[in-house]
Design a protein around this nucleic acid. Structure first.
Length: 749
DNA sequence: CACCTTGTGTTTTTT
DNA sequence: ACACAAGGTG
């Protein structure tokens, strides 16, 4: 081992981590709790392998995101001061893509196949269903898509699936659609996300000499987030590792949050049985979270029955209690969270990069965006509606896709009549008919139709325009740059004019700006391009496989917004988890099933353990969802946190909550606790200005008291829900003898 | 063929 | 609330 690496290792890893780094022969499983430094272990282990003289090209590392892969490459590069391009580091999907590009032809997959994202794939499934006369209203295409995806994960081909046909209405439909879908995918020269892994397994199963080649290539295999491996991924790893058995997996069964796409944490628990003589290492020291946060996280996850017992501990400080923020509705919640961020930035000179706001569903991002915009705080939204999924961007990309792959009907369908060229459904049918008669592709049929003098259909002119764009673009690609191609499409396609006509000015501007951004991105991609693969092909697979999580940057000052799923593997000094309500988190679709509920709990655990020093939880007492405002109940997860680890933070936004106004912030223990400490409220206590405590709504200011028909109606302004009228007879109110003392005011001007 | 209206259903998490 | 599909009209 080189001196330098040895020194670095000694300084930066503990004995268990060192053992994991040094055990380079044979199968090794590392059970690594949250924040126990597993990324560090993988990084140093690769560096160690290289240091031992293993060629870079013989090391395969599977990471959860492409960003993690790039970061790892960089760190190894700077650790050893060498070029890491030869390393095989990436997600399952990107590694399989590379393998199939190189060797897919062995099982009839063309080298230039397209990659379909979920939207493309769903659109093709709908077409298949329509073609099979299946009523899309009766059978949800998404559930069919899910069934097909599940089959591929379970390594069940369409032929095998059809054997179980006859066992029910839905199964028969899936069987039909699955076969047709596979046929159409071949015609489209396309693979979907599941195919990338599934077909690689098929390749290895069917072509032993190819498998042999890759087994020799990947002498050392490392897998991160092993608890989220599914059946097809497991099989892939098993095949590749079966010869040398140098497989190193790292995971944490408490952080398994992808069961919905087939992940099975039991592969982690079964590792020792599958790989005889394997070594097991446990990393139980957490270096990330404060004691308070770690304890709260443990409170949650220990309620799961299906888990390995373990004791994660930390030497870190106790830290502050977890803060609970109770809000009246989702807008109020967003305002309060933003307010708390602003206070910290102003009073504790925190960087905006220290904060992340987490939520269960993407749709919840909107209120936070609005609140941040109105306070002009810069933010980055990760996930959700991704740049490359925006309609105008995808339409533009579709042109590029057809240029490189004219067989791809899904993209042709998107753009043949966009912008409008008088090519409607009838004309498309006509082209399909010609394709059928001439036994040629749809694209070819377009040309045939243009040759024919007798086609005087209204769409003829439009069709000629369309074909011209594609053909000129293809010529440009051969003789010019990719950027030239993009510019040509930008100018000739009329998308810009179409957007201007279609949308009000401000929207059109935004969309056109997106296209401008796309052109810039293409130019930048081309500038830094140094691979052998044809550039357009590489660009297109990159944009479908790369998520914007991969582009997340920490350079600019920004608050980060994302789902709890997306935050896996990351850490932030201060974490906000919003929407801690029953039905939202745990999500109501997970309520009925025990396994699903345990997954929600793990998700909660993942969220908590992202926080280094402060954790804020919030919920709204009323939430608008799917057009209706509903009263909510706070999440059961809040009740699972032991009382001494959490306190309620009461924030009242004086005035309308806009900036520049004085805000009153006060912190007391959980209102529940105060309520139990309090004494019964007498009618004489209900004078204006008195502070009382309500069982559910916490503290409030008495506004007025009226006697109506012998009943006392009191109007109270609650910090949590605003003004409420309550009947004294029934209201669960109590009063604290020293209630005023717990108030403290912070001027935030 | 394009546009508009109406009605219907649907609502997690990601590569 | 929103998206999408279908149906009717110019």
């Amino acid at each position: 081992m080189t001196k330098r690496l040895k020194k670095t290792l000694k300084e930066s890893v503990n004995p268990q981590q060192l053992e994991a780094v040094n055990s380079i022969k044979g199968p090794v499983a590392v059970f690594a709790g949250a924040g126990s430094g597993k990324t560090r272990v993988i990084t140093y282990r690769i560096a160690h392998l290289i240091d031992k003289g293993i060629p870079l090209g013989n090391i395969l590392a599977v990471t959860f995101t492409n960003k993690a892969a790039n970061e790892m490459k960089e760190r190894i590069g700077s650790l050893l001061d060498l070029d890491t391009k030869e390393l095989w580091i990436g997600t399952f999907h990107s590694i399989c893509l590379r393998i199939l590009r190189r060797s897919g032809k062995e099982i009839g997959i063309r080298q230039d196949f397209a990659v379909f994202d979920n939207e493309d794939s769903l659109s093709l499934i709908k077409d298949c269903m329509k073609e099979s006369n299946i009523d899309i209203k009766r059978v949800n295409p998404r559930s069919v898509s899910k069934a097909i995806s599940d089959s591929k994960v379970a390594l069940v081909s369409s032929d095998e699936y059809s054997k179980i046909a006859g066992n029910g209405y839905f199964i028969d439909i899936v069987s039909n659609v699955y076969s047709l879908y596979e046929k159409r995918m071949r015609e489209n020269n396309a693979l979907d996300f599941d195919d990338l892994i599934y077909k690689t397994v098929l390749l290895f199963q069917q072509k032993h000499e190819i498998l042999d080649k890759y087994q020799e290539l990947f002498k050392h295999i490392l897998v991160d987030e092993y608890q989220d491996v599914n059946a097809v991924q497991y099989e892939l790893l098993r095949l590749m590792a079966s010869k040398h058995k140098n497989i190193f997996v790292v995971g944490d069964d408490d952080q398994s949050i992808y069961a919905f796409r087939g992940a099975d944490p039991s592969y982690m628990l079964r590792f020792q049985k599958e790989y005889k003589g394997s070594k097991v290492i446990k990393l139980e020291e957490n270096y990330r979270c404060s004691k308070m946060i770690l304890s709260a996280a443990n409170c949650i996850v220990q309620n799961n029955e299906n888990r390995e017992q373990k004791k994660l501990w930390t030497k870190n400080e106790d830290g502050a209690k977890v803060k609970l923020v109770v809000c009246s509705n989702e807008k109020d919640e967003a305002q309060k969270v933003v307010q708390l961020i602003q206070d910290q930035v102003k009073n504790k000179s925190r960087s905006l990069n220290d904060f992340v706001v987490l939520y269960r569903i993407n749709a919840a991002s909107r209120n936070f965006e609005e609140a941040l915009v109105s306070e002009t705080i810069p933010y980055q939204l990760v996930g959700g509606f991704k740049f490359y999924q925006r309609k105008e961007v995808k339409d533009f990309i579709s042109y590029l896709r057809v240029v490189i792959n004219p067989d791809e009907r899904v993209s042709i369908n998107r753009i043949i009549n966009y912008p409008k060229r008088n090519i409607g459904a009838v004309f498309v049918k006509k082209i399909e008919q010609v394709a059928y008669e001439e036994k040629c592709s749809f694209y070819k049929a377009c040309n045939v139709l243009l040759e024919k003098k007798e086609t005087v259909a209204r769409g003829r002119k439009g069709l000629k325009e369309f074909i011209d764009i594609i053909e000129t673009a293809r010529n440009t690609l051969e003789n010019g740059t990719l950027f030239d191609v993009a510019k040509l499409i930008y100018e000739k396609s009329n998308i810009v004019q179409s957007l201007e006509n279609e949308f009000p000015e401000y929207l059109a501007k935004e969309k056109i700006a997106n296209l401008g951004e796309l052109l810039t991105a293409i130019n930048r991609f081309e500038g830094g391009y140094d691979r052998k693969e044809p550039i357009l092909q590489a660009y297109l697979s990159d944009v479908t496989l790369y998520t914007d999580l991969d582009q997340m940057n920490k350079k600019e000052e920004k608050v980060t917004l994302m789902t709890i799923h997306s935050v896996k593997g990351l850490e932030f000094p201060i974490v906000f988890m919003a929407g801690m309500e029953e039905g939202l988190f745990p999500h109501y679709l997970s309520n009925s099933k025990k396994d699903a509920l345990e997954e929600e709990r793990r998700l909660c655990y993942v969220g908590f353990t992202r926080a280094k020093t402060e954790l804020y939880l919030s919920y709204a007492m009323n939430r608008e969802l799917y057009g209706k405002t509903n009263k909510t109940t706070s999440s059961r997860f809040l009740d699972e946190i032991s009382e001494d680890l959490i306190e309620t933070l009461r924030i009242s936004l004086v005035g309308d909550g806009k900036s520049g106004l004085r805000k009153q912030i006060s912190s007391v223990n959980r209102s529940k606790k105060d309520f139990s400490k309090g004494i019964k409220v007498e009618i004489e206590d209900l004078t204006k200005g008195k502070i009382v405590c309500h069982k559910v709504w916490g503290h409030g200011l008495v506004m007025e008291l009226n006697e109506i028909d012998g009943e006392y109606i009191v109007k109270i302004d609650f910090d949590t829900v605003g003004e409420r009228m309550l009947n004294y007879k029934y209201a669960p109110l109590r009063i604290l003898e020293d209630s005023e003392d717990s108030e403290k005011e912070i001027d935030t001007d």
